[in-house]
Amino acid sequence: MDFVLVHGTTQSPASWDRVAKLLAAAGHRALAVDLLTPEDLPVEGYAQHVRDQYDGERPVVVAHSGTGVLLPAIAEALGARSLVWVAAYIPDFAGGRCLRDEARALLEPDWIGVDPAAEPAKASEFLFHDCDPETERPALDSLRLFSPEVLATHPAGPAPEVPSTVIVPTRDRTLRPGWMRQAAKERLGVTAIEIDAGHCPHMSRPAEICGILTGRG
């Protein structure tokens, strides 16, 4: 099975390295795509940018954090068989609100205004607090800001028609676990899978994430 792994707003594709290696060891193909471009694109442009990086068919598409905004469009462009939302924003498909409209309900107050890519200590506090010392160094090395205006302002379109899995880290210090849990139920009609981790479980708990992705978690 193919997995297309989409980095979040504060990390590069390297954030998926550990999960990708585990997926490959289990006999799957994993591609961590890069969303960064020389100039900001519309949502459809980022979806095509991912399409240009992937040469397979019907992958499982996995997105982290704020790139949940892009996940439905990317999945449609790739003809995805299913979607996985990892500590991710789930758009307001019925109401059409954008991420900016929901930010104060979604984000933990102490996280608002923090740029972890510029402040490694803040990254350790908010993103990687559950990482062991061996993991924290590559986690910090993966920091890179990706925050085009479209992520904040794009109004939600229709809900995806393919199945979704939602992974909620119960010790997330950036996105509210309760909000993600409720959004999974109300917006996607699924019960979230909860994991004892912070906002980046693909860094701190890669084997658990791999197990969920492959159906063994």
Rank of each mutant, 00 (worst) to 15 (best):
D2N: 10
F3V: 04
G8I: 05
T10L: 10
S12T: 13
W16M: 07
L22Y: 02
A24C: 01
R29P: 01
A32H: 03
E39Y: 10
D40T: 08
P42F: 11
V43P: 02
E44D: 15
Q48L: 15
Q48M: 13
G68Q: 08
L83N: 08
W85T: 05
V86H: 08
F93D: 14
A94I: 12
G96A: 13
L99D: 03
L106H: 07
P109R: 04
A118W: 13
P120V: 11
A121H: 14
A121K: 14
L127D: 01
H129A: 06
C131P: 02
D132P: 01
D132R: 06
P138T: 10
L140F: 15
L143P: 09
L145E: 14
P148H: 06
L151C: 01
T153V: 08
A156P: 10
P158E: 13
A159T: 08
A159K: 15
E161M: 13
V162Y: 04
P163K: 05
V168A: 06
P177C: 05
M180P: 01
E186M: 12
E186C: 09
T191E: 15
T191I: 11
D196C: 11
A197V: 08
C200H: 07
S204W: 04
S204E: 03
R205K: 15
A207P: 06
E208G: 02
T214V: 13
